[in-house]
Each structure stands twice: as C-alpha cells, then as structure tokens.
Nucleic acid binder design. Structure first.
Length: 712
DNA sequence: ATTCTGAGCCAC
DNA sequence: AAACGTGGCTCAGAAT
C-alpha cells in the first residue's frame, strides 16, 4: 500500500490491467462457458458445446486432470465432446441390449437354425438382410444373416464366422442351411436395397429367388423428393422408430464381425424388423395408388435382376491405350500450360477467380465469369490466348476426370471397372450412375474409346430414335408430330421445313450426311420447349437476338397449339394438385412449390411449373427404357449375351462376335415392342463396336464381315 | 488431414 | 427483363 503512493499513473494503469488479466485467468467455469458460447461458433459446434456443458453440469463429464490449471477453451470443450460421444455410444448400446425385444432371437446352434428355416418355409413372404465385413460385393463376406418371419412375429439374427466369437456357427454351415430357403421362389423375400444382399449371396454361391419387394425403390415411388433413402432414416421418419446407423453406433472404421453378439442381435434383428414394418407401411400407401403399385411390381422389382447382371458384367478398360493417350495429353497440356503462364502470369489456371482477374487484365474488358461455353468461346476468335485456354481446359478436364482415372478404377479382383446404376437415382425415375467414382452416363466420346469388348465379344448398342419427342407427341397428341412418326418422317426436318418454308429435303441432311442448319436449329427449339427454356437462353444457345428467340417460341406454339395446350394443362394440374402423373399414373412427380399461391415472379414456383411437363416426358421415357431393359435382360439370358450398360435412351450388350442377323432382329424386336407411347411407333438404331464410341451401323458390320470372309 | 460448397463441365 | 430439365465428378477455397 505504501508503495502505491510512490507509483506514477502509468504504472498504476499497468497494475490495474494485470489485475484484470489475473481475474480473467481464474475465471469461473460458468464465465468460461458464457465466453465460449458467445463466440461465433458454427451450428454443429454450438450444439456440441451445449451438450458438453450439460454433461459437465450433470456430472457425467469432467476436465482432464492435466488441463485443470489451464483456462477452459473452446478447443478443450470440443475435445471433451469426443469423450462424451463415446460415453453416449456406450450407454446407448447398453440401453439397446437392455431393451432387446423378447421376439429378437440369436441363433447359435444348428437345431435352432433348422427350426427358423422350417418356420420361414411356412411363410409366403419373409424379410432378409445380411451383415458383412464391408461394402465391396466382390471382396467382402457375410458375417450374419437376419430373417423376419412375420406370422410368428420373430426376428432372427444368425451370426456366423468370421464373427469373432467362438459360439457362432461356421459360415458354410449357416449358408448351406439357408440356401434352399433363399433359392426357393415360393417364399417371397423383402429387402432394403436388394442389389447389395443378392450380390452378397451370389458371392457365397446362393442364387436368390422370390424377390418380392425392395423397400428402397418403393420409397422412391412414395416420395421421390426424399433427401436420403437410407433404411435407418426412413424407419426414424416413417415408422416413428428412432434408429441409429452403423457408423453412429459403432464409429467409422468398425467391423461388424467385432461387435459383441448381444449388440449384434439387437442391431441385426432390428434391420429386418424395420424393413418388414416399412414394407407393410409401403403396401398400405401404394394400395391407394393401384397403378403405381402395379408399375412397381411389374417394372421396378424385376428390373433389379437386370441391374445386378449389368453391374456385374463390368467394363474392360484398354489400359495400354489409356497410358499412351495420357502421355500425349500430358505433353500437350504442359505445352499449353507454359504458353498460358507466359501470357497470364503464374496463376492457378484451374481457379476461376484467379483466371478471371488475369483474363480481364490481358483483354482489357470486364468478364461476367470464366464460363467456357458462354463467355470464353465467343472471345476465342479474337484472342489466341483464350483459344489456347479453351484447349487447355478441354484437355485437363478430359485427362483428370476420365483418361487418367478410369484405369485406376479397375477392380483388383474382377479386373474390370464396375459402375453403379441407380434405377431411382433421379426424381423423374431416370437412372443415375456413380459410386466407385465412375459415372457411366457422362463418359465423353474420347473416353469411350477406353472401353473395349472382351476377346470374342462385341459391344452392340441400341438407342431409341427421338425417344422424348415421341413421348411428347403422344402426350400432346400434336397432329403434325403424330403424323410424322406414323409416316416415318423425321420430325425435326418436317418442323424445320414448315418453319423456314423450304422443301423437306433441304431441311434434313446435307449431301455429306451431316445435319442441315435448319434441322439442328429445330432440334434445339424442340428441346427448348420440352425443358421450358426461356427466350434468353434460347437466344444465346442459337446465337440469335432475344427478339428472334421470342418469335421462334411464339411461332412454335402458334404452329403446334396442341403442344402449347398440353404444357398449359399440365401446369394447371400441377398448380391445383402440387404434383403431375407420369406414364398414365405409373409414377408421381411431386411439385409442392407449384401449388404456392403467389403474386409476381417467384423462382421456385416457376421452376416447379417447368418441371411438370418435363417430368412427364423424361419420366415416361425412363419407364420405356426400364421396361425394355427387363426384356433385354431376359433375351441376354436366353442367348448368352451380357447386359453392359444403359444411358437414358440407349442400352448396350456384349454379344459373341459371330452373332447373326436373327440375333439383331430379336434385339430390335425387344426395343420396338416392349413399351409403346400410345399409337406412336418406336424407332431404334443398332450399332456394333469393338471399342465403345467407334460403332458402325449393324448393316455395315455385316457387309464388312462378308467381305472379310470373301478374302479369307 | 478431412469435410463441405460452389463453379464448371461431362452425359442425355 | 428474365427464367434449361435430370444427374455425378473434379477442383479450389474455406471451414473444421
């Protein structure tokens, strides 16, 4: 105190600051929480922090002794969250085991297994699920099978080796016992994501028969807008049965084979329990839409076998060609990169913001973006550097997305590339493709050359001629289109002739076989109409003025009033009901936004109204493709061909190279006869290739084969 | 080091 | 005046 008198004001301030600091240093835990929770935390972090605070307050969680002296920080709180999560997992698992329903039965001996199988044979439908060592259907193995027998209301989990518990039966014993049941078509089976389990059974020599229902595609019909079709999520949302995923319960890298049997029982048996309940829930709701139910049972369910066959065929990749092609591409890319860096400076050429700045500097003009098609292409003629940049972009895209990666995706066990085909991956019912990093449906021409037929086989592809336009002709009943298809006249050329007031022949093909400008233009306009394109986009894609584009669309609707009327009718229906039907009631496309009462322009509502007519066309075309694919799969089985791929309006098979004209006729018949758009006839083109993308028309192929035979 | 998002681009 | 439907993958850049 004496000392204080001797201090000047500045020292006094310092002392006070130190005192404040000291106070902060010993801040109470409550104060620390106020400080931490007031920070700008991301929403998930804030939730974690609150959970930690509550757990500490409740005494379940305490600070580590090593941290005791340190100021309580956000980082420490988040570290403690991990501890909390583990604690919660343990208590959750303990509660699950504690609450194991009495009708969940663990099967550990052959006698019980025999009884389960006897009971299952007495059922008309059962639910089945597999637990495995992983997700690779060519590598992983079954560690347990769940079965639900509904009339006895029992849910069995049958663990087997390699489950790490000596009480379990050997896998060969369990699977040999189950084989007759699983292969008997008289006992229907319900799965969630049947493709996976059927593949797993194939891996163990079991050919599943009697697939009755798959709750995953069924849910896609009941609500295509569902953000995820994961079983646990659906059970939580639709059955009021809170269900944690495998990762939530066991952590990320966990192995089911390591899960203790009491936990494995309650988790595994619950899988078929909720699958069965979801099945009953879905039947109840689909019964209210009999046409959807019929479509589901006659198309979506049988399609599963076709998709399994297609995914298993896989693709042979020409690795040598890919390597050589890659090397020349890399050289070209390096050269272009050097030139571009000289002109633009040491920027990252793949970074749109950096590129935009550099290009604005070099060209002296403001750019809207670095969009290659819209912005850069028109500038390419004026600035050679931009032409180079476009070439660079094209090459790097092709190289990094396709040429360099396809060989890396080859499966080490099968030696082939296996893409996934998701039959309900889109809201309209089209296939999507992905998984394993390979989307088979967007392979550009130059990448297709990497896909080669196996020795002794050729790739035979068939596409539907003007599939969506034929569908639109039937939906709208537009007489000009109906007549064109009935007479075998090219609809684009016919419309072009009418619009440009020129003879049909001058609007069809050029002497060299390429499309005329008139036909190309009309094709763009037709698609523009089906996609609900506005005049702005049409003007830029056709490089015409807005006024011209507006006139084009207006003329189109005046000339073809039935199309106009169908679009307006469909939109009115969507506005009133919040959905549209696809394929005469086979599917629904739910568009809740269309129903919103609004004044003025609301983007979401307008978008929903564009989606309505488009969904009818895209969706029914997909139904035609799927229906045809099922028949093609059967033809493949009969003739020893392999289903290879499908790309929306196209399907490919592998055929022995000595195929006959009769084989082609059968293929063609499947394409033409499987699904009709009313009275509009179908059309198909068939091509043969050893390398995908290098196909020749089948007539040409036979001609070439004949001349070769003549020589030898 | 992983995870997420937007821009961009491939297909029909 | 604007406003092109359905997907999946790669990369950059930011967040964690």
């Amino acid at each position: 105190m004496e000392l204080k008198l001797t201090l000047n004001d500045a020292s006094n301030d310092r002392l006070q600051a130190a005192a404040v600091k000291r106070t902060a240093h010993v801040e109470s835990l409550d104060e620390a929480w106020l400080r931490i929770l007031a920070m700008k935390n991301a929403a998930p972090d804030q939730a974690k922090l609150l959970a930690v605070r509550d757990a500490m307050a409740g005494g379940q969680l305490g600070r580590a002794p090593t941290s005791a002296g340190k100021r309580f920080s956000k980082a420490e709180a988040l570290r403690m969250y991990k501890e909390l999560a583990a604690l919660q997992r343990e208590s959750k698992l303990a509660a699950m085991v504690e609450g194991t329903p009495a009708n969940y039965v663990l099967v550990l001996d052959e006698q019980t297994l025999a009884n389960v199988i006897r009971d299952a044979f007495a059922e008309s439908v059962i639910a089945v699920d597999t637990e495995t060592t992983g997700l690779d259907v060519f590598v992983d193995v079954i560690v347990g099978v769940s079965i639900t027998t509904p009339s006895t209301d029992r849910h069995y989990y049958i663990p087997c080796t390699p489950t790490k518990d000596e009480r379990v039966l050997p896998a060969d014993v369990v699977l040999a016992a189950l084989k007759p049941l699983l292969e008997d078509a008289a006992v229907g089976k319900v799965f969630h994501n049947a493709i996976y389990d059927i593949n797993m059974f194939k891996r163990h020599g079991i050919e599943l028969r009697g697939l009755a229902w798959d709750t995953q595609p069924a849910m896609a019909l009941l609500n295509e807008n569902e953000p995820s079709f994961a079983l646990k999520r659906l059970a939580t949302n639709y059955l009021g049965e809170p269900s944690d995923t495998f990762a939530e319960l066991f952590g990320k890298g966990a192995q089911f084979a390591d899960v203790p049997l009491d936990i494995a029982l309650v988790y595994g048996a619950k899988d078929t329990d909720i699958t069965w309940r979801l099945y009953e829930f879905q039947r109840l709701h689909l019964a209210k839409m009999p046409k959807v139910l019929d479509y589901y049972l006659t198309v979506e369910v049988p399609l599963i076998e076709a998709v399994i066959a297609m995914e298993r065929t896989g693709f042979d990749i020409d690795v040598k060609y890919a390597r050589e092609y890659g090397i020349t591409m890399q050289a070209d890319i390096a050269r272009l990169e050097g030139e571009l860096h000289d002109a633009l400076g040491g920027i990252n050429l793949n970074s749109p913001p950096q590129l935009k700045e550099a290009l604005e500097r070099v060209t002296g003009q403001k750019l809207e973006s670095t969009d290659a098609k819209r912005v850069l292409k028109p500038l390419g003629a004026k600035y050679p550097i931009i032409a180079n940049l476009l070439k660079y972009k094209e090459l790097t895209k092709l190289y990094s997305t396709y040429i360099s990666v396809l060989p890396e995706k080859i499966h080490p066990v099968t030696g082939k590339l296996h893409a996934r085909f998701n039959a309900n991956g889109t809201v309209t019912g089209r296939f999507s493709s992905g998984g394993n990093g390979v989307n088979l449906q967007n392979q550009p021409y130059d990448a297709r050359k990497l896909f080669v037929a196996p020795d002794g086989y050729v790739i035979v592809g068939a596409d539907f001629k003007a599939q969506e336009i034929r569908c639109a002709a039937n939906k709208s009943r537009e007489p000009v289109l109906i007549d064109a298809f009935a007479d075998g006249v090219d609809p684009y050329a016919l419309l072009a002739a009418k619009h440009f007031k020129k003879p049909y022949d001058e609007c069809y093909k050029n002497p060299d076989g390429s499309d005329t400008v008139e036909r190309k233009t009309m094709k763009v306009v037709m698609l523009a109409v089906l996609y609900g394109m506005g005049s702005g986009t049409l003007s830029s894609s056709l490089k015409i003025t807005m006024d011209e584009a507006r006139k084009f669309l207006a003329d189109f609707f005046v000339s073809y009033p039935a199309i106009d009327a169908w679009i307006k009718e469909t939109q009115t229906f969507a506005k009133r009901n919040g959905y549209v039907w696809i394929g005469d009631g086979k599917r629904k496309r739910r568009l809740p936004e269309a129903k919103r009462k609004t004044t003025g322009y609301v983007p979401e509502v307008q978008r929903a109204l564009r989606q309505g007519p488009n969904a009818q066309i895209q969706g029914e075309s997909a139904i035609q493709t799927k229906t045809t694919l099922i028949n093609l799969h059967r033809l493949c089985q009969e003739r020893g061909w392999r289903l290879y791929a499908t790309i929306h309006d196209e399907m490919l098979v592998l055929m022995p190279e000595d195929f006959t004209p009769a084989d082609i006729a059968a293929y063609e018949a499947v394409m033409i006869d499987s699904y009709q758009f009313g009275d509009v006839p179908n059309g198909t083109d068939i091509e043969v290739a050893r390398r995908w993308g290098e196909g020749v028309p089948v007539d040409e192929w036979f001609k070439q084969r004949k001349s070769k035979e003549a020589i030898s």
